[in-house]
Each structure stands twice: as structure tokens, then as C-alpha cells.
Amino acid sequence: MPPAGIWIDGLVQSCIYMTMAFGMVLVFSILGILNWTHGQFYMLGAFVVYYAVTAAGVPFPLSLLISGVIVGALGMVVEKLVIERLTGPGYGLLAVTAATMALIFFFEGAAGMAFGLMAKGMATTLPGVLDMGSFSISYQKIAVIIFTLVIMVAMYIVLNRTKVGKAIRATAQQPDAASLYGVNVGWVSLIVMGIGCSLAAMAGGIMGPVQSVDPFMGRIPMIMSLLAIVIGGLGSLTGAIVGGIILGLLNSVIAYKISYFSEVALFLLVIVILLIRPQGLFGAAPK
């Protein structure tokens, strides 16, 4: 058995992948596209938190909310300016996929020019460790886990108990019928994109103290959460959560056992799952 610290690291990673994957699935179920720029919203969120905490002296929890709002608004702008215009009739999936991939480079370049390429540390936020006898957990990692639980509960409430959530679920099931019943589908797309991006931004912000903040930090979480939603099943929220847990834990626990080739094992696992069940673990069977 790997030591407890490895499991906790795995859990922290799972939490981040889960939060990101949740946002991506939400966007996918409404807009029908994979938002490849998701990792860059994670990165931008981390930068907003970094500058809010270090330059403006805003308390950490408040700066998380600020980054969620700012980056969520940015996500809405992207939806309005780019995605909506490329998903009309006459466009296939290629155009919007290519556009969101190009935005990866756009945001990374913009962040590199604005904030510099140097990695920035904010380890002094939330210092200290919780001593558990045989092992210890830093408060930063506890914060990540609590944050994820809060987010998941909040998302559950929003999706199942509010009117907006009802509109989102109806649109995901059947957009035409939903719009017949008075749901503004364009507006729902905008809201969902905002929610997804602010989730990514807050995940980036909460991970800021654990790792360092740099313009390219979003690439690995993006790929991992993408893999998570694909093995979990595109469009399935449960799948996103389970996929995130599987990937996060495997990533650190396998790495403990077979260092270098753990990533190979991870990718092979993804390939095998996709070949056996192309619709993913929790996806609906193809019609």
C-alpha cells in the first residue's frame, strides 16, 4: 500500500479534475461541444486569485469568488463572440473545435505577455499543516477538498432545486421542447458557459497555493479532465465525477508503484476503456 500522503495527493488531484470535468460536461450537455479552452480558464482564474491576494490584499476566499465572477464573465464573452457564431447551421464540429483549441494559444500568449513567463508562488497563503500522527496534511490541500465538496453540493442544489437548474436540465434533454416551453436556449447556453468557466477558474485559484502559477499550468488539468469526461461518458455528470476520481487517484498511486510509465498506463487505460465502451462508463448506449 502506498503511504497516506500519496492517497491524499491523489484525492486533491481528483478534486480538481472533478471540478473541471463537471464544468466541461455541463457545457457539453448544453452546447454540444467540448470546450478545449477550459484549462486556460483554470490558469486565468489562478492568476486573478494570485494578483487579488498578493497585490490587492483581498482575503483568499473572497478572491476565489472574484476570480469565478471575472473568468465566468470572460467565458460568457467567448461563448457570445466565438462559439455561438461557429455553431450555427452550416458549421460542423470542426470549426468550433478548432476555434476553442486556437483560444488555448490565444489565452496562453495573452497571459504570458501580461503576467510574464516566470512561475509565481503563493505558498504563503494558508500556511501550516494538520498533524495526523503518522502523516500530515497541509491546510492548502484540506482547503481544496472542502472547496470541492462545497462546489458539488452547491451545483447539486442549483441543478435540482432552482428554476435555472430546471431550465438547464430541460435544455440538455431536449432543446427544442425546452424552447417551446419558454426556456431561452441561447440564454441557458450563456449561463452554462459562465458556470463552467467560473468552476474552472475557482479550481485554478484554489490550486494556486498548492502548485505554482504560470501561463502553461492549465494544459495538464485540461487534458486530464478531458480524459475524465470521456471515460466517464460524454454528457454524464456522474461520469465526470467518477472519471475525475479514477484519473486523479491512479495518477498518483500508479506513479508511486511504477514511476515513469504510470502516465503510459493511464493513457492505455483510457484507450482500453474507450475501445470496450466507446460511449464511456456512464454514457448512454449509442442509438
Binding site: M101, A102, I104, E108, G109
Partner: peptide, 24 residues
């Protein structure tokens, strides 16, 4: 001399081509 500007321009060029040239 500007660091990282090529990423920004690459991304912008692709998005602009997709948006403004007819149907990609």
C-alpha cells in the same frame, strides 16, 4: 522582443479566419 506574442497571434489568426472567412 515580446515574449509569447506568437501564441497570441496564432490563436487570434485562427479564430479570425474561422469567424470572418465564410464557413471556415
Amino acid at each position: 522582443p515580446v515574449a509569447n506574442v506568437q501564441y497570441l497571434v496564432f490563436g487570434a489568426v485562427v479564430v479570425l479566419v474561422l469567424l470572418f472567412l465564410p464557413k471556415g
